[in-house]
Amino acid sequence: MTRILLHSRVDDCLSAWRSAGFRVLAPSKRNDLTRFDEVHAASDMALDLVLPERTIKDHFFPQTEPLLNYRIKKQAIESDEMLPPQQKRIFFGVRPCDASGLEIDDALFGWDYKDRYWFSRRENSVIITIACTRADDFCMCTSVQLSPDSTKGSDVMLHPLKDGRGWRVVTLTDRGKELAETIASMLQEDASETAPAASVPVKFDLDKVTSWLADPSNFESHLWKEVSQRCIGCGSCTFLCPTCHCFDIQDEGDTYSGIRRKNWDSCSFAMFTMHTSGHNPRNTQSTRWRQRIMHKFNYYQGKFGVNSCSGCGRCTRQCPVDMGITETLQEITNLPR
């Protein structure tokens, strides 16, 4: 049975989901920024974007998150844990790269300790992904063994129809099937042809890259300095990345009370590895950039069996000096064997 959802029925779906207690988030443009935000009507959505500028990671691992509040008394320290609200959410119109990013990060957040903040949000969220029929110059999912219609990390996949009336609906998980049932009356049987997935050229040789990175003799390669010379050391590539997950714990308040927070941090920053002594083991931008590439394509692979990159290309797309993962991995690909 092939079912489709027409664009004209999206508003009905939103009403049904909202009355079932879901918050619905979709790509939208507000204040000159495209990101996932709560939507109340199909007209709030910006589904024609190749990708929103911000990732859905923000809604699972926010840039700043309170963990607990504390009060220091004469004889005791009191604290109250602060947990994220138990809110059922639907993410509508996710791109396959962003959905894959969530699954890549599940490994990290569930490794030696199950991060309650990440997983309570994961378990309360349904991911409805739309396969890409368009790509831009920076997309590179096919270079990291994913694709414009990859199902990784998604609960429901929508494939745009060739005639542009709507999407073919494919449920992928139990959560996705349950959700599709809530809008069963709005779906119709229809075997219309789907539009071809976007064509995304392969930009580098991932196998060659990962084996080059795994060779310890390349750790001190001159390539690192060359490729990172223009890096200005901002954190935009890490903060816009759907898989970068580093954070710092900070106490905010005065002598007697405050809030302990988990804030995004970035390996691009000199402060990231600064020791209390003043010694900094990564004291140049090239060693910091090497860490970022090694972490994504060597260490993460070694620990969890996957690369920590889903090919969205935001790192290059929004880099102030036109430098991202693609450019570095192309340089490695082009090295003589």
Binding site: L33, Q63, G233, C234, S236, F239, W264, P320
Partner: peptide, 16 residues
Amino acid sequence: KEQFSKCIKCYACRQV
């Protein structure tokens, strides 16, 4: 307030 609420403190403005 609306504009700054978008900031993610990546410090690209400073670094550039």
